[in-house]
Structures are given as C-alpha cells and as structure tokens.
Amino acid sequence: MWPNLKCKEVLSMKKITSMMLAGIALAIVSVSAFAQSWPVRPIRLIVPFAPGGGVDLTGRVIAPKLSEALGQTVIVENRGGAGGLIGVDLGAKASPDGYTVVIGTIGNIAIAPHLQSKMPYDPQKDLVPISQLANALNVMVINPSVKATTVKEFIALAKKEGSNISFGSSGSGATDHLAGEVFNTLAGLKMTHIPYKGGAPAMIDLVGGQVQVIFATVSTAISSIQGGKVRALGMTGNQRYESLSEVPTIAEAGLIGFDVNGWYGLYAPAGIPKDIITRLNAEVVKILAMPDVKTRLLDAGIIATSSSPEAFAAYAQAETKRWAKVVKDANIKTD
C-alpha cells in the first residue's frame, strides 16, 4: 500500500489515520448527542424591529407556542434599526448552538443586498432558513378624490396625469416603495415616489391628499378603508384578504404579473446542527397551522405560511434575484 515506507512507518501512519477517523466519529456523535439533548436553557428569538409592528406581532404570537412545544422559554428580544439589518446581523453572528434564532424579512434578506453598498452579513452564507412564517399583506389605496374605482381606471388616469401622480411609501427600499416601482414598470407609468419615515405618516398624507396612492400594509390601511377615508383598489400579493374579500388582487384587476409579498421567515446562524433545524421546523409548522395562531395573525393582515427549510431557501433565493432586477431597472436608491 505504501511501497516506499518501512513497516514501522506504515504502522505509524495507519495509527494516525485510525485516530483521525475515530476523532471524526466522536465529533459526529457529540454533535448528535448535543442536538438530542437540546434545548436545556431558554432560547432567544430576535425580532429586528421595534415593538408593535407586524414582525413583532408574529414573533410574539409564535414564541409562547414554541416555548410550550420545546419545554424551554423562548424570549422575544427586539433589536430594531437600519431596516432590520442590526437585528438580523446580531442573529447571524450568534453562536450556532440553537439558542438564538431571528426573524428575517423580504427587506433585510432579499432587497437590502441590492441597496446597501456594504452588507454587515451575507443572507445566503451567514444564515440558515428554518421556515417561512408569514405573508404580510399590502393593499393599494388611493385618495377618494382620485377619479378611479379600479386598477385599470387608475392606470388610464395616471398615464394622462404623468408625474403629477405621486405615491408615498414608508421609506426608500421598503416593500411598499418597491411595490410602487413594480407598478410603474408593469403599467408603463412615471409616478413620483415620496418617501416617508414610516407607513403611518404616509397614510396621513394620503388621507390629506398630499399623495394620491400608497401600497400600504393592511394593518396600516384597514381602519381608513373601513372609515371611507381611502379607497382600496387591489391587494399587492397573489391572494385576497378575507376581511376585504371584495378587493381583488392587482393581477386579478388587470395588471398581469404584479405580485409583491411582504414575507417573514425564521432563520438561525449558519453552522447550527441539522437535527435542531429539523426539530424547529417541525414545531413551527405545527404552530402556524393552529387555528388561534392563524386567526390572530389574519386579524392584522398577516397570513400564516410555513414551509420546509429547503423550500424556503429556494423561495428566498428566487426573491433575491427578482428584486435585484427590480432595483436595477428602477434605479432605486436608499435615502
């Protein structure tokens, strides 16, 4: 086997090889044993936004259910800032031992890499997907003074008005901003973008007539819709919202190909044992199928949506590629 080596040297190399193999086997057994005993202490769930929003609500609805399923407390930790980048970065750099997970969103996973000159983390390399959690619904709403009752009528009017039509958003690079840019591209419009520091200020100016349209989250828009202060023309995603069942999707209303979903998903730091990912995924899928969980989220315009780690990874990668093109074509810049 080793023709140029003496017998003692051969035996020595065999011994070294055997020790290396034994070490590898021991490491595998140790990781497996660790995963089987997990969890033995509380788990941190990082929400990369301030309390009160849709991501925070989703985390707080899931956390107690996950605590019950795992037999250990799941503690929600809000670490907001920079559109979620700070919190997600904290999660990405945590120890991959199964005791830190983080909620990522379309913004800080699929869109930010194309807007930031330097990302603090690589969503594809530094994070491992566990499951999609939800689709946060957005709705296209206009000021009632705008003489349109359908998406097609709005497009026809906007083509006549040109850049005199403006759309507001919760900030440059946010989902509602990107939705407006996709609408511009598919409809052949040149609406002017007006960024705000949040969805609520944008809604206030829509009601006041300072902007003509926004693509707001349902939670932000629902009271103004029901109060007749704004008019809903279409849902931005690929499904209707039960509480606004008469409002079609924008694609159904005539703008074929329009589909903007503000999704959330659960991630762990890269390097986490596979067995823990499998366990977390199984429990999260069960939780998101619970009627009380689905109802509580749906009341806020959030649709509980689970997936396998592999399916979620493929979806996030496809979304990343898709938004790269949108950002480039629309020449979108952050503030």
Rank of each mutant, 00 (worst) to 15 (best):
L85E: 04
P113R: 13
A110E: 14
T100K: 01
S224M: 10
V207F: 07
T220I: 11
K197G: 15
T100H: 00
F167K: 01
V247Q: 03
Q212K: 06
A94C: 07
L90Y: 06
N184F: 00
A187Y: 03
D56Y: 09
S224T: 15
A69M: 12
H114D: 12
V213L: 10
N331V: 12
S131W: 00
L244A: 04
K65I: 11
A22G: 05
G98S: 08
V260A: 04
P291W: 04
M1D: 10
L70Q: 04
G23V: 09
A232S: 05
I106M: 11
Y99E: 04
A324V: 07
T150C: 09
A148P: 00
V247T: 07
A313Q: 14
K6W: 11
Q317W: 14
V74S: 10
A136I: 08
A136W: 05
Q210H: 09
R296S: 10
G301V: 01
A63G: 07
A253G: 07
A35W: 06
N78C: 13
G227I: 06
I155C: 00
T217E: 08
G84E: 03
Q124N: 11
W38G: 04
W2T: 11
F154R: 05
N184M: 02
L85K: 04
V102F: 14
D275M: 14
T249G: 03
G173Y: 07
L206I: 10
I250M: 13
G234L: 00
G257L: 11
I109E: 04
R296I: 00
R60E: 15
T320E: 00
T100N: 01
K118D: 15
A318K: 09
G107K: 05
I86N: 09
A316H: 11
P51H: 12
E77H: 10
T217Y: 09
V211L: 02
V141W: 03
T217K: 14
E68T: 10
G168P: 10
S223D: 15
V260C: 00
K6R: 11
G80E: 14
A251L: 08
P201H: 01
V47D: 07
S307Y: 01
L186C: 10
S37P: 00
R279T: 13
D97G: 14
I272N: 08
G98L: 05
G71C: 09
G209Y: 05
L266W: 02
M119S: 07
Q210K: 15
L66V: 13
D335Y: 06
A148Y: 11
G254W: 02
V260K: 04
H114F: 06
S67E: 06
A330I: 02
P64S: 06
S308I: 09
G301D: 01
Q36M: 12
V151R: 03
S170Q: 05
G228A: 13
I214D: 01
F34I: 12
P120E: 04
S131C: 06
L66K: 03
G254C: 02
I276T: 05
V31W: 08
M13P: 01
I256H: 10
N4I: 03
L280Q: 05
D176K: 02
V182M: 12
R79V: 15
N184A: 06
M290D: 07
I332G: 00
A187R: 03
L178A: 08
Q317D: 13
L70K: 06
I109M: 13
D122T: 05
L133H: 08
R279K: 10
S169C: 14
A216G: 13
